Amino acid sequence: MATRKSPLNGLSALVTGGSRGLGLLIARELVGRGCRLLICARDADELRRAEEELRAMGGQVYSVVADLTDTETPDRLVAVAEEKCGQVDVLVNNAGIIQVGPMETMTEQDFREAMEVMFFAQLRMALAVLPGMRSRGTGRIVNITSVGGRIAVPHLLPYAAAKFAATGFSDGLRAELAPAGISVTTVIPGLMRTGSHFAARFGGKAEQEYAWFASGAGMPVLSMNAERAARAIVRAAERGRPEVILTPAAKAAVRLHGVAPATTVRMLSLVDRLLPSAGNGTGPVRDVSGVDACERLDSRLVDRVTSLANRAARRNNEPVPAKLGG
């Protein structure tokens, strides 16, 4: 049931990566605005829990277990959406992965995986929904990118490379689709307290990598309340805004990079010196999840610093370490 008047009321939306984290929060906002909803994700149990929660809100919600790296998945999702919801009026490209570690721990496959999930999946989903949107002369596409798609942060290079590609695609797509009546919104979040630090993968000195990444994601000054972020994203979709940058820190960083790119790179080089070296670490980035790294680190200080993000993980259907009640 819609809780407020919205131009999205009665429309059908498809949210990728909608079972947890930011995707689930966006799904909640869309249900609250009266959208019919199809969500997809790879984990069947997470997806079932998310669907049950969203239906309990009074929403007309369906879910599909899907791997967006499969080239046939987008057409299959659109077919299900058309069968269950009538059509796809709103596409939210949210699915993503996070790989954290120095370049020495990354392989070409890590970059390919990041590109498949966060660029090619967005491209294929857009191609799948565009025929219907073009025929109706209307539609909304929301691409979740990142401040990492404007500024390449050390120890996140596969993520940054994929997000740069997604940001460029989203900006260009808006220019091309505007005459067709289709709005494209590029969302550039900074750090948000979604709980995704537990789902990230860590390489090199995994425990130390987890400590800096999770701490940044959990600090109130650096990170943003994820519920507020989701509301801002859906409002941008309602208004057809071309771009929304979330968090003051992200806005400041993007502006600084725009006027002083060389200075920004020098600052990032200094940041890199403070981050853990590859050393005799735990190996490739795919080896250690955030849950595992948290358990192995076993730091009360980091647990306290990340307490807000840890609570968000529980609310947002993210994995949680056993020591924190998972």
Rank of each mutant, 00 (worst) to 15 (best):
A236E: 06
A252I: 07
V244S: 09
P102M: 13
C294R: 02
V92K: 06
A211Y: 05
A322W: 03
R48M: 03
V221S: 07
A232F: 01
A217P: 03
F169Y: 15
L270V: 13
L91S: 03
R20A: 13
L30N: 10
L324E: 06
T16Y: 12
R55G: 15
G190K: 03
V129K: 11
D75M: 02
M118N: 10
D171H: 12
K163T: 01
T185F: 11
M57S: 13
T71I: 06
G10D: 02
V65Y: 00
A165F: 03
F111S: 09
K163Q: 06
A2Q: 14
V184R: 11
L24M: 07
R55C: 10
G32D: 15
L8P: 00
G18C: 09
P158G: 08
S6L: 04
D171I: 09
S183F: 04
A165R: 01
A214Q: 06
G203Q: 00
G139F: 02
L256Q: 01
K84T: 04
T138A: 13
G18H: 11
T71G: 06
A27K: 07
V65I: 04
Q99R: 15
G21R: 05
N94T: 07
R241P: 01
E116M: 14
P7M: 02
G204Q: 06
S269W: 12
L8H: 00
R4P: 00
V100C: 13
I39A: 14
G195N: 09
E52D: 15
N93P: 01
V320Y: 03
A66M: 05
F111L: 04
L77V: 03
D89L: 01
R136K: 13
A293W: 01
M267A: 14
E53N: 10
G290F: 06
M125K: 11
R42I: 07
A313N: 02
V234Q: 10
I39F: 13
Q87T: 15
T145V: 14
G148D: 11
T107R: 12
L8F: 03
T16I: 10
G281V: 08
I98E: 15
P276N: 14
T73I: 08
T3F: 13
Q208I: 01
L8N: 02
L246Y: 13
E295L: 02
Q99T: 14
D287A: 14
